[in-house]
C-alpha cells in the first residue's frame, strides 16, 4: 500500500433492502485515480452496493462505515453525496418527460457548483460544454432539447448517462452494469468516454457481470462479489479467469474476511 490517501473507504458494511440483508460485511479501499471492477453472479449485491453508496431511499445501512475523502458518506443526504463528487451511472436510466436534457443538466451542474461555493456557469458557456459533451459521446446535439431519456434507445440512455458524467466531473464514478443492453459499437463509445475521463483525481467502480467491458476499460483491480461480500480480489487477469471458469468455483470457496482490495 502506498501512502496516498484513499478516496473511498468501506469498512465491514452491512446493508439491507426491505429487511433482507444483501451486503454482508464488505470492505473496499479505493485510491484516487484507481479503477476497480466489481464482478459477480446475479443477486450478489452488485447494484445494491451502488445504491447504498449513493443513498437511495429504501436501502438501509445496518452497520459498518463508509468515508469519501475522509467525510462520513453515510451521514449525508443523497444530494449531498452527489455534490461531494459521487456519481452513479444507472443501469436503467429513468425518463423525466417534458424536462429537457439541457435544463436538467444545467440545474444539476448549478446545484453542485453552488454547493461548492463556485459561481454559476453562464447559459452560453454551459451550452458550449454540453455540445462538446454530446459530440464526445456521439449523441446528436438535438438530444439536449429532448426530455430526459424520453424515447431514447437503450444505447442512447447509456451515452446520456456518460454525458452527465462528463459535465458533472465527479471524483468517484460508479458504473452500474453500463454494458448491459449495449451492442459492441455502443460499448466502445461508452468505454472510450470513460477512458477519456480517467485521471489521477477520478476513480471508478465498474460493476459488471461480464468480462467483455473490461477489454475496453482496463481495471487496476478486480473484485468478486458473492453473497454480499468480496470473496476474491486480484488484478485484471482475475477477470479473464472468471470468464473462463465462471463464478461457481468461487461461491463454493469459504469466504475469507482477510481478502481485501
Amino acid at each position: 500500500m502506498s501512502n496516498t490517501k484513499s478516496l473511498l473507504t468501506i469498512k465491514d458494511l452491512h446493508a439491507s433492502v426491505e429487511e433482507k440483508q444483501i451486503i454482508k460485511g464488505l470492505d473496499l479501499n479505493i485510491k484516487p485515480g484507481e479503477v476497480h471492477a466489481i464482478m459477480g453472479p446475479n443477486g450478489a449485491g452488485k447494484s445494491t452496493l451502488g445504491y447504498v453508496l449513493s443513498g437511495r431511499d429504501g436501502y438501509t445501512v445496518d452497520s459498518g462505515s463508509v468515508t469519501l475523502d475522509g467525510e462520513d458518506l453515510l451521514e449525508m443526504e443523497t444530494e449531498d453525496r452527489a455534490r461531494a463528487g459521487l456519481f452513479l451511472a444507472f443501469q436503467y436510466p429513468v425518463e423525466i418527460p417534458g424536462v429537457s436534457n439541457l435544463e436538467f443538466l444545467k440545474a444539476s451542474v448549478d446545484a453542485q457548483r453552488q454547493a461548492r461555493g463556485e459561481d454559476a456557469i453562464t447559459s452560453a458557456d454551459f451550452l458550449k460544454e454540453a455540445k462538446a459533451a454530446c459530440k464526445q459521446v456521439n449523441l446528436p446535439v438535438a438530444f439536449l432539447k429532448r426530455g430526459v431519456n424520453e424515447g431514447f434507445s437503450g444505447g442512447e440512455k447509456k451515452r446520456n448517462e456518460l454525458m452527465q458524467m462528463l459535465l458533472l466531473k465527479p471524483k468517484l464514478c460508479i458504473l452500474d452494469e453500463t454494458d448491459s443492453g449495449l451492442d459492441i459499437d455502443a460499448l466502445q463509445v461508452v468505454a472510450e468516454g470513460v477512458n477519456s475521463q480517467r485521471s489521477a483525481d477520478r476513480s471508478f467502480i465498474v460493476v459488471t457481470h461480464y468480462q467483455r467491458l473490461l477489454d475496453y476499460i482496463k481495471p487496476d483491480f478486480v473484485h468478486v462479489l458473492s453473497d454480499g461480500k468480496i470473496v476474491k480480489s486480484g488484478d485484471a487477469s482475475l477477470a479473464l479467469e472468471l470468464e473462463a471458469q465462471g463464478y461457481a468455483w468461487l461461491q463454493k470457496e469459504p469466504a475469507e474476511d482477510e481478502l481485501e482490495g
Binding site: D57, E79, V94, V99, S108, A111
Partner: peptide
C-alpha cells in the same frame, strides 16, 4: 416516481427542486 426523485437527487438536486422540475416538465 421514486426512480425519478432518486435520479434528480443523485445528480445533486434537492428534493424540492426535483419535484418542481418534474411537475413543470409535466405541464
Amino acid at each position: 416516481s421514486d426512480e425519478q426523485m432518486f435520479l434528480c437527487r443523485q445528480r445533486g438536486l434537492d428534493p424540492e427542486k426535483a419535484v418542481s422540475m418534474i411537475v413543470n416538465g409535466f405541464c
